[in-house]
Nucleic acid binder design. Structure first.
Lengths: 252, 252
DNA sequence: TTTATATAATGATATAACAATTAAACATTA
DNA sequence: TAATGTTTAATTGTTATATCATTATATAAA
């Protein structure tokens, strides 16, 4: 590939933001991906190869590859027959971007919680329709686990979060799962409050009811229970003093 | 800053490059951001500064900055008093990540549509609660606009999409808006089908009903109408031959 | 066949240099 | 004085050249 090809788009009248050569490479690869000229697993070549192909230095290629890697478009392997390849999708990249940008944008906790309620409410409906024996067993096991953790606030909270994740997973919809994971880490701070015994006991009861609704395939009930459940969590987090907005959920 | 400090946070994860010095820098900055030690606009310093601070070469710092820049965490300006700064939130980064990862992951159109239905269903509920006169006027204007475009399939489709966006905006929840925008470009391909007159007419009627429900503050009805509406779109897109999965929506 | 070792490919990092860009300081002019 | 060029210094962008660390693969030995 000729250097001229890269430079050409710079020459058209001074774009406010002149694109660096590295950026041109990023754009080319990205465009190729979206036009279907690349598929996951396709090898792009080593840094040396690419530097020769684009007629730029290795460092410049590295700049471009670092960007593409961070975007999740390429994966880089070291060693013989290593180099850059088109990546398999990794939804963690998406979840990452979500948490970073929501944080930088100053989106509030209530806004994110509303979104999470929408996600989980819809996910549990789907779960009630699509659940399979494996899902149900997993959910059931988590309920048992939680039962044994009623006296362990931290443990119960963690187990409860796993239950919510399992519900979303039972929906069988990867878009929901990715979305849930992204929100999870932003909405629930690391050191959330711990559930006192009576609250934990109440939460477990609701979880059990949700499980039953999923098992019976009752979409409506499942959704209503989930939403009431999450709304009550919202009340506990965001009630009274706004200080609490930064502390974690009370039960799950 | 000592080099030793960099190595400490090697802990979790173990992607190939996790131990690279550049990644340590990325992790440190990222961590600082999430702990609130950085705010948008804060200056991190020039490449030279940072190289000295971290006791690494400029190349390594550049690697880290390129990653942070792509993540949307820092903005880099060239020239005097340039350098790296903590970025303002830019939800386009998020939408970008969504489209890239959903594409690479092979998430299907139906999965994404389910997510979009969840978003819009919840958003319209919020809109019915939070709507203000400005929102209502905007929605009303769009309905008028659509009325005049019944005979123009492409125009009507575009106007219809603006209506959906306006509904989500009326929710007043930026998380919903960001999510909607991200999905929009992936779910609705560029050249969607055009609505024939009778279908357009039907869609407009539903839009009007949704508008009324929002205006009257009737969350339940607004939600039900929106979901029925989107489900019917799903049927039109994904019915019969699976080929249609790649073509756009019929009305909006 | 399995395991250990050597080798080559490749990325990671460092150093040095120059080009291109930009904001700010400075000088000039109406 | 206020607007407008001009210079300057700081900063990123790019290139070139080495060296080190890591990894896959080929090779040899058990």
């Amino acid at each position: 590939m000729e250097k001229a090809i890269l430079i050409k788009s710079t020459s058209t009248w001074a774009p406010v933001r002149a694109n660096s050569v590295a950026n041109q490479i990023v754009l080319q690869v990205r465009e190729a991906l979206f036009e279907g000229r690349f598929l996951p697993g396709d090898r792009l070549g080593s840094e040396k190869d690419l530097a020769a192909q684009f007629d730029v230095s290795r460092i410049t290629v590295r700049d471009a590859l670092r960007t593409l890697e961070t975007m999740g478009i390429v994966e880089i392997r070291v060693g013989a027959s290593g180099g850059a390849r088109i990546a398999q999708g990794n939804l963690d990249h998406y979840s990452d971007a979500l948490s970073i940008q929501f944080r930088l944008s100053g989106i509030t906790g209530t806004e994110m919680l509303d979104l999470q309620i929408a996600i989980e409410g819809a996910a549990v409906e789907l779960a009630a329709t699509n659940r399979n024996p494996t899902d149900l067993e997993k959910l059931s096991n988590l309920l048992e686990e939680a039962e044994g953790l009623l006296g362990d606030p931290a443990g119960f909270t963690q187990s409860g979060q796993k239950f919510h994740l399992a519900v979303v997973e039972a929906s069988g919809n990867r878009a929901f799962i990715a979305q849930f994971n992204g929100l999870r880490h932003v909405v629930w701070p690391k050191n959330g409050k711990r559930a006192k015994r009576e609250i934990a006991s109440h939460a477990l009861k609701i979880h059990k009811n949700i499980y039953c609704a999923i098992r019976e395939g009752d979409r409506e009930v499942a959704r209503k229970l989930m939403i009431i459940h999450l709304e009550s969590i919202r009340t506990m987090i965001f009630s009274k003093n706004s200080k609490k907005a930064t502390s974690g959920p009370v039960c799950c």
